[in-house]
Computed example of a mutant assay.
Amino acid sequence: MREAIFRYVKETYKTEPDYPFSTAPTYPVLRHADNRKWFALLMDVSREKLGLKGTEHVDIINVKLGDPMLVDMLVRQPGYFYGYHIARSNWISILLDGTVPFEEVCRWIDESYAVTASRQKKQKIRPPKEWIVPANPKYYDIVHAFDSAGEIDWKQGRGIRTGDTVYLYAAAPVSAILYKCKVTETDIPCHYSDRALTIPALMKIRLLKRYRPDRFTFEKLKEEYGIYAVRGPRGVPHSLGEALKK
């Protein structure tokens, strides 16, 4: 399974194994190219050191997970252990003798890669997010924004990436969410600036759905979903996200 893992990380992440330990030359490390952090360490240890019967050596892979509760759940299953020699910081060890299927091992390698990535890389590889983005009718006719085009340019908020979902909220006097949009492109250069507005970058958003102005009003957002202000791009609470999808 070692060779299968090496092929997987090379194809998926363009990563080659690194052997940094002079005292353990058979222990390869898999690390990020930018921050040099490990996202996996392969070792061969005796079964008895893992609390298993027998003294023969077996391969394991150490990976880091983001949720300590998930760690506690996994180590109750066959083939999973608290991190051997790396017990801190949510590391686990996975037996590579077939007890845990290869596809499942790859899933946790992916998780570890994401957890240990640099901040810049995390932004790029994170799953799509949902945002509420405000629009001021004083500066833009948001009510008629999509009357003549299904896709428009919009000011890009910090943290928003291609593939994210944006719900456009029209400020007073409308005071309601009007549109659901998909972000199709980001980081479009822009150098607009005046006394009221500065736009350093644009994104393209494609209309997916319209909402009646009386459907998701500010009063409803406040009373039912705990949203008391929409002054800039913000995340969407789960309960509101489910309602917006209906």
Rank of each mutant, 00 (worst) to 15 (best):
Y167K: 08
W91I: 00
I152C: 05
I125P: 12
D141G: 15
W154V: 12
S239Q: 14
A117I: 06
C190Y: 01
E16R: 03
F81N: 02
S112C: 12
F146K: 02
E16V: 11
A24T: 08
L197T: 15
T15L: 02
I188W: 05
R47I: 07
F81L: 05
V45F: 04
R195D: 15
G157N: 09
G66P: 06
D187K: 11
S89F: 01
Y8E: 05
P20D: 08
M1D: 06
V133M: 14
N90G: 02
I177T: 07
L178I: 07
F39C: 08
D34G: 04
Y167Q: 09
K121N: 10
G51S: 10
K53M: 09
R195W: 05
L74V: 01
Y8L: 06
G98Y: 02
H85L: 09
P128K: 07
E242S: 04
T162V: 10
D141A: 11
L30P: 09
A117C: 09
P17I: 04
Q120E: 15
L178S: 02
E219W: 06
K37V: 01
E56K: 00
E185F: 03
Y13W: 14
E3R: 06
V115R: 00
L70D: 05
N136V: 07
K53C: 04
A171L: 13
F39G: 08
K209Y: 10
G163T: 13
Q156G: 04
I152D: 04
L52F: 00
I94H: 01
K138F: 09
G98I: 02
T184D: 12
P127L: 07
Q123C: 02
A201T: 15
K53G: 11
V166T: 12
E130Y: 07
T186G: 10
R107M: 05
G51L: 08
G51A: 08
I61T: 03
V9P: 02
I60F: 00
E151I: 05
T217L: 04
R212A: 15
M203W: 10
P25G: 04
S22Q: 14
A172P: 15
K220T: 14
R119W: 00
I132R: 00
D153Q: 12
Y192S: 07
A24R: 13
D67Y: 06
R107P: 01
K49W: 05
P20T: 10
N136D: 15
Q156V: 05
I86F: 12
